[in-house]
Design a protein around this nucleic acid. Structure first.
Ligand code: SF4
Ligand code: SF4
Lengths: 158, 158
DNA sequence: TTATTGCGGACCATTTTAGTCCTCTTTAAA
DNA sequence: TTTAAAGAGGACTAAAATGGTCCGCAATAA
C-alpha cells in the first residue's frame, strides 16, 4: 500500500513534539511518555535519527536529544531516509545494478522521473509544516510547499 | 524506503508490454516470456489485475488477457492499488480507527494532505506515459502530467 | 562515587512478501 | 465428442522485513 514504516511515523510524531521547543533537550523517556510510544522503541528511533544527523544527543545525566536543525530546515524526506534509507519507489531508483531485469526493463527511466518527483515533494515538506494544526480556515488548510511536477530536467537516472 | 512491491513493479512492466497492442489478447505465458518474469508469478499478478478490473480475461483455448481500458485511461495508481490496496502512506490514511495513537496524534491531518497529494500524482500518470521511452530530446524527457501540490481543498480526512 | 542518560548491537516474534503448485472450469478446435 | 490450451481460485512455503525488547558499555552531572 506504499506505506512508510511505523518507525518513520513514530519519528515524525516524536520530532513533532520536539519542534514545539526547538532548542530544548528531551530525555528519550519523557518523549516516550508524551508520544504514547514504548520507551525502548522511542530510543531506537532516536538513535537512528542521531546517525542521520536529524537530532543531536547529549550523554550522561541531564542529557537527552535536541533538534539538530530548526523545524523549518528538517524535511520529512530526511526523517524517512533516516529510518528507512533514501526514498526509492523501485529497486532501480536506489541502485541500478541491483535489479535483475534492469537491462530489459523499459519503464525504468520513467520510474526515475516519478521517484524524483515524490522525493522532491517530500523534501519540500518540513517538520514546521507538520506541526501546523490543520484548521478549516477561509482558504482551506494547507501545507505550504512549492509545486511539484513530473517534469524533470535533462538528467536521466537518479 | 517507501517501496512499491515487486509484484506491482512486475504489473507495470507486464502492462507496459500489453500497452503496445492495447486490444490484443495475450496469454500469461507469452507475457512471462517477453517480460523475463516467472510464469506462475506473472499469472498471479494478472489474476490480481483482473480482480481490480485493470485487465479482462478470456478463458479457454486462445484465451488470455487484454487491457480493460486504453493505456491512457489506466493509471499507475490503479495498478498499484490492484496489487497492494489503496495508496496510503500512513495507517490512518486508509482507516482512521485502525491506529492506536490516532486520538493523541497531532500530525494526522497533515499526513492526510501529503497522502492525497501523492495519490493524486500517481493517479495522473498513465500506462501510456510509462510506455514513452524517455529520450534526451531538446526539451528534456518528461512524463506529461498536471502539476501536483500539497494544497488540497477544504475536505479533511481522506 | 553514583545515578542518569545515551550507544551499540544482539535478539526474537510476527508479519509481509514472493514465488510455486495443484485442482477445477472454460472454451476452441480437431 | 474429445482433447488441449488457457484462466480461476486458493493453499502452501521460504525468505525477508518489521517491530519491539533487552543487555552491557560509555559518558557526564551532581
Ligand atoms: S523498474 Fe525495471 S529496472 Fe527498475 S526495478 Fe522495476 S524492473 Fe527493475
Ligand atoms: S499519523 Fe498519527 S494517526 Fe496516522 S498512523 Fe501515524 S500515528 Fe496513527
Amino acid at each position: 500500500m506504499l506505506r512508510i514504516s511505523k518507525l518513520s511515523d513514530y519519528a515524525i510524531i516524536i520530532l513533532g513534539h520536539m519542534a514545539k521547543a526547538p532548542s530544548q533537550t528531551f530525555a528519550a523517556n519523557d518523549l516516550a511518555g508524551s508520544a504514547g510510544i514504548g520507551g525502548p522503541t522511542v530510543s531506537k528511533v532516536l538513535k537512528a535519527l542521531v546517525k542521520a544527523h536529524v537530532v543531536r544527543s547529549t550523554r550522561g545525566a541531564k542529557g537527552g536529544y535536541q533538534l539538530a536543525q530548526t523545524p523549518e530546515k528538517t524535511s520529512i524526506a530526511s526523517i524517512i531516509a533516516a529510518l528507512e534509507g533514501p526514498i526509492a519507489l523501485t529497486e532501480c531508483s536506489i541502485d541500478l545494478n541491483h535489479c535483475e531485469q534492469a537491462s530489459s526493463c523499459n519503464v525504468r527511466g520513467n520510474w526515475s522521473v516519478i521517484n524524483r518527483a515524490i522525493r522532491t515533494a517530500l523534501e519540500a515538506v518540513t517538520l514546521a509544516d507538520m506541526a501546523i494544526t490543520p484548521t478549516m480556515g477561509s482558504d482551506g488548510f494547507h501545507i505550504p510547499v512549492k509545486d511539484i511536477t513530473f517534469q524533470p530536467r535533462r538528467n536521466p537516472e537518479q
